[in-house]
Design a protein around this nucleic acid. Structure first.
Lengths: 104, 104
DNA sequence: AAAATAGTTCGATGAAATTCGAATTAATAA
DNA sequence: TTATTAATTCGAATTTCATCGAACTATTTT
């Protein structure tokens, strides 16, 4: 069973999170997770307009930037926003993403 | 005498500004301008560790993203932060850049 | 055991970004 | 008018990024 990286947010730079959140598809993922419940969402529960290979890459980018965390559950991979930690490390950042209602 | 683009911030997406601010060198420019007075700073008044061609490119990127504005004054090009407008369009964004004290 | 499901990984491709030196432009100073 | 200063533009090299199909892995269902 796969385990996922979960970096300490203190070692994540603003450049890294900005780079990760600059992509519209990744912003869409973050907005969906902000509305989701604590259980999180599986990769195929987002309406992403990219292939599953590309989607998988976007989830990895968000994990590496400390923005989401993922866990294997059965055959699925559930992801959650690291909301509290992000709000402490980068106050206001998630609010900006949430406020941007944008067509992809 | 050169004039510079100055896009309406309403048409600038979060992706565009995040992309622009993801670069450490451009963050350095923004932080310096935040400390500068209203007159702004000329391109050679930043301690950037890149060639002047590269610096010029970074200033253009920031202008196109609506983050700074520039004007010719004699032989110099003075740039200022579009701070008020940015704080209205993307509240908290400049604060994040200012808070990040980072070696390049 | 075979099939279905959900993701990941690999390898390749095309697009975009970063960087620079050299040439150029425009304004000022000598 | 020539030289200097400050910055832009051009062309090219390098790197990074987004994207995909195909192959693979792991889990669950039949």
């Amino acid at each position: 069973m796969k385990t996922f990286t979960r970096p300490d947010l203190e070692i994540i730079s603003l450049s890294t999170v900005m780079q990760a959140l600059a992509d519209p598809c990744r912003q869409q993922i973050v907005r969906a997770l902000k509305e989701a419940d604590d259980r999180g969402l599986a990769c195929n529960e987002f309406d992403l307009e990219v292939s599953k290979a590309t989607a998988s890459h976007h989830f990895e980018t968000l994990r590496n930037a400390g923005i989401i965390e993922s866990r294997s559950e059965g055959v699925k991979c559930l992801s959650c926003l690291r909301e509290k930690e992000l709000n402490r490390r980068f106050p206001g950042l998630l609010g900006l993403v949430a406020a941007e209602t944008q067509a992809i």
